[in-house]
Amino acid sequence: MTTLLRHRLFWPAAVLVVLLASNLIFSNNFFTITLQDGHLYGSLIDILRRSAPLVLVALGMTLVIATGGIDLSVGSVMAISGALACLLIGDLSNPDAVGPVLLVVGAAIALCLVFGLWNGFLVAVLGIQPIIATLILMVAGRGVAQLITGGQILNVRSEPYRVIGAGYFLAVPVSFLIAAAAVALTVALTRRTALGLLLESVGGSPTASRLAGIRSRRITIMVYVFAAAFAGVAGLIYSSDVSSADSNAAGNLIELNAILAVVLGGTALTGGRFSIAGSVLGAVIITTLDITAVSVGVPVETTLLFKAVVVIVLCLAQSATFRAKVFGRFGTRRAEVPA
């Protein structure tokens, strides 16, 4: 029992369970999953589907934070990726052909890789503080996206493109599958190779890592490229879901939600140890929170307040200091019982 309590994913998992359970009180069929037209439907499926972009962005953010950095530009990169995809699809002679749409998707992600390299270059080569370096692209990126769309919302009609964000494969939402694949890829990349260890080492102490022979510059660039690529995919999912590119709405404030997800998942902003499972859990909690706010019937104008309260409670529950303060006296007494 105590080992379970000490597990670093215990508190986020507990909060998720409580959130889901509280939904049940307000809507009895919350956990019902039905099959309609070969698609799975239900609130739980909805949570999985709508978590996808945030999970993707949080994955990249986790790795960046593990190196002691931060990436504020992910929302703008999402907007850029969606904008470029919609622009190119609009120019296609046959937007319903699969091949050209795949090429467009590739081009959008390639552009994001370039932006990732840019962030990595500023941080690792020029030594600019990550928060400032990525702030540049955060601000400028929206401008780039608007430049691409000509300052308008680009609407597209393309069946293959719609599949990314709104389609289903074997009754399961495609966006969920993409996010799941990204999680699997990230886990494999960091835990099956030594990348995870080297990341944690760089985040833990850059100087000591360099003296241990780690190419910290290369690794730092890599994580920013990684974060941008995943943000690009998230941008495609978002834009495909609404079949349009909206440079202002796409990925708006998602960087803050992603940072929140990473922190909720137990990765410290100071870098070092990171938890991918924790970040995924964090992202799902945030999405569930949004959906819960609607299903519980929280008025729209107080949704943010509701969210803030839950996040504060969660952070307090996770804080060992706070728990010791509240339950501390009880805890010591129990410890003093002779063995």
């Binding site: 099956r192 190779t193 030594a194 990348l195 260890l197 080297l198 080492s201 890592s209 241990a212 022979g213 780690i214 190419r215 690794i219």
Partner: peptide, 14 residues
Amino acid sequence: ILAMQAARGWTRPI
């Protein structure tokens, strides 16, 4: 293992 791992590169975990 850090120094040995760094020398091998991240793609070849010990």
